[in-house]
Design a binder for these strands. Structure first.
Lengths: 196, 196
DNA sequence: CTGTCCATGTAAGGCGTTACATGATTGT
DNA sequence: ACAATCATGTAACGCCTTACATGGACAG
């Protein structure tokens, strides 16, 4: 379970309450690992049970506040998970199902779906670039340049991915608008490996 | 639930058994919508209950064989779903968590993870291209050129996405190997919209 | 005095995976 | 004789989402 390890990751930086963890997720990793509140609380309970975190209870008016700390065995587990290559990750894309079965609906209906996707993708593309540009200069001055660099790489990934998506969407929309059923040619793509 | 609609999609082409549906998934949409056998059977039971499919029982030796047919209300539901724009789809990328928290492990450990990912991605990239090239010429001669074209577009998407991924991985690996913490410059990227 | 922020959780249900179980037919 | 293919399912567990519930503090 990756959510466990994402939480351990944040706690390895500093102790957090469930509430603050939620804010950290939303502020940094939500683009590639969204997490919701109830999930975070449940997972913190599990982590506590497994001995990977401990809770420090701060008495408050109303409900008590619980600050979570990572334990040594938590750090060990996190390290193990981070350094371990994962097998291929399976992705599910409802949009592609819509395209795949697109022959069952009209061109206008397909285009409607594609244009909506393009608009949404364009918006988050701009958003990612804005964040990227806002933090891009902070690497050298950051207390931990390597860590800052690595975390910004995830934004790079998002930007490049969105670029590829927008590219594809534009070309698909154009082909459908003109009734041109021609396919892209990928023969120019160098595949240096597997060649003799 | 998209699996429901993927199944309805296949059944809109022709009746299938659960077993054959599984093979159809594996042969065509597994790259963007993997489905396993028990899930398919459970979902077929649900669809039957909802009146979107009917079963035709064929008596056999051993267990009976059940062929599923889509109903009119199933076609209607499928159409509705296909034509409806979805909101943004959330994606979860364990690899990016590993990179984001990469400051907790060594360069060699990060590189190990990234190289494994690159190798896996390169393999599925080649696989996608091979399928694409095998079917690329069939559009014009296909009984349903539009449908064939649309289904091949999903392969295009996969190929472009993998290209972007491999691109990113190569450049990240190179920067980490040389200890170069510089970021990509995306200022050249045209964003024609949102500009005055 | 209304709403937002801080902070905690429970309940229920849907989606997905893994493992297990059955049993005939066909190919090596 | 053994394995693969055809074909069906159940059980159990894990992950994720949505909705609901509580309650003080503080700002407009």
């Amino acid at each position: 379970m990756s959510l466990k390890h994402a939480i351990l990751g944040f706690l390895s930086f500093q102790p957090f309450t469930g509430y603050d963890l939620k804010k950290s997720f939303d502020a940094s990793v939500r683009h590639f690992w969204p997490a919701n509140q109830s999930q975070i609380y449940r997972t913190l309970a599990q982590l506590t049970q497994e001995g990977f975190v401990t809770q420090e209870v701060m008495e408050r008016e109303g409900l008590d506040k619980k600050v979570y700390h990572i334990t040594d065995s938590g750090r060990q587990e996190l390290h193990r998970w981070l350094a371990e290559p994962r097998a291929i990750n399976e992705t599910r894309e409802p949009l592609l199902l819509q395209v795949f079965f697109g022959s069952l609906i009209s061109d206008e209906e397909v285009l409607n779906v594609l244009r909506a996707e393009r608009d949404a993708a364009a918006a988050s593309f701009e958003q990612l670039k804005a964040i990227y540009q806002a933090y891009g200069d902070t690497v050298k001055t950051h207390e931990n340049p390597r860590g800052q660099f690595l975390s910004l790489l995830t934004l790079e990934y998002g930007i490049l991915g969105h670029q590829a998506l927008l590219d594809w969407l534009a070309s698909v929309i154009q082909r459908l608008e003109t009734g041109d059923y021609s396919l892209r040619d990928f023969n120019d793509l160098t595949n240096k490996e597997h060649r003799e």
